[in-house]
Nucleic acid binder design. Structure first.
Lengths: 211, 211
DNA sequence: GTCGAACCGTACCGTACGGTACGCTGCAAT
DNA sequence: ATTGCAGCGTACCGTACGGTACGGTTCGAC
């Protein structure tokens, strides 16, 4: 999956979506068709033509931003204990940086509100481009580390969810609820990696079961 | 704090708030002054008289429900390793049960949406009656366990946040975004308690893990 | 130059909703 | 019985917003 879902946008459409996103992120003004049109210097009619309706516009904005912050892959070759630790820490730093950023906060709030009415579409997009995409990138790393004898676990999904919890803690929910927790990302990331390794690193540094 | 904040409600007011809450939780109908009045069989004028405006009503609803689910205290006397484990597990079960319940989901969504406009009041209420109230109950347990030589940590806040992360993992955010993760609460709670003890239990002086 | 498509700006429509006003009923106190 | 008040139901007002219509402008194709 490349995230485009066959929805290529023209340059102008990208500008409009950026403007809409900025509006949503700032939060100074309500996200209304008119405010988007004004901000993007386009007509409402164009918005309706391109994105069908308000929901379509919102969906396109979420899609647009989510596809911009695809997580990077982690090198699973030549894994050493220190390289693994570095990758875990890097994942944690990146993730904390993204979710504590205003775009993530605004989009997640919008999606949560959207899910309040029956519609779960925005949430699904954010989850599949965020949480699940990340899982898909990190799990191979974990499995490679297991292969290399560095980690031991039964289920990589379970292991990843533990890592996720150790990194996230209460940060995301507090941010979504309007709290502004002071977090030292580097420090928290290091601690999370540390704790994860404490839980999952194989007891003794040995070579794996497959020489 | 007893959670009342000097806001005693008459029985009738409680009924109205229950009706409003039910409306919010079901999500079938928009949360509007008229729909609340209809559902509660009261007049809009009464709503405005009692709760000032829509925000006041929403705040009262959040206050009302949040104060109903105060976390219980954990017995910190005669702590043994198994009693500690049981308390941790109990906390995890309770917390997962609450946050995966429709009222919590609906209220958190409403608060997140509310925080989208500058207003963080609902979020603050939920955090102080939820996350922080729980922390205030659990931290004494952790400190007592440290006193009893069962745990070792520097900062109980940090330790609690780790416990929080191990219990919550990705559950709450997925629920808020409309996903319906299938979780086995008892199992996840046990695992979280297990992992927390692995991270924070003081190494046993002599007893080997394999008798 | 002419044509047509795309798009901008704005005016407009219908509705939903927050908030107010008012008349009516039931009830408790005197 | 009279009075006063709390509260129900409903009608009403103003506005904000989703969605549509339309005239004017730019620009590329021919």
């Amino acid at each position: 999956m490349d995230g485009s879902l066959g929805l290529e946008r023209t340059e102008r459409q990208g500008e409009v979506l950026d403007a809409a996103l900025a509006l949503l992120v700032e939060g100074r003004e309500r996200f209304t068709m008119e405010s988007v049109a004004r901000r993007a210097s386009c007509s409402k009619e164009t918005l309706y033509k391109w994105f069908d309706d308000r929901d379509g516009l919102l969906t396109a904005v979420v899609q647009w931003q989510a596809s911009k912050v695809r997580p990077g892959a982690y090198d699973a070759a030549n894994l050493t204990a220190s390289a693994l630790r570095a990758s875990l820490e890097d994942f944690a730093v990146t993730w904390l940086g993204v979710v504590s950023g205003p775009p993530s906060i605004a989009l997640n709030r919008a999606a949560a509100a959207h899910a309040g009415g029956g519609k779960a579409e925005l949430g699904q997009i954010l989850l599949s481009e965020g949480r699940f995409a990340i899982g898909a990138r990190v799990k191979p790393l974990l499995e490679a580390a297991r292969e290399a004898g560095l980690l031991s676990f039964d289920d990589s999904e379970t292991a990843f969810r533990t890592l996720f919890g150790l990194v996230a803690r209460d940060v995301q929910i507090r941010l979504l609820l309007g709290d502004r927790p002071a977090i030292d990302i580097a420090r928290e990331a290091a601690k999370a990696a540390d704790q994860f390794l404490t839980l999952y690193a194989t007891p003794k540094p040995q070579k794996g079961p497959h020489p």
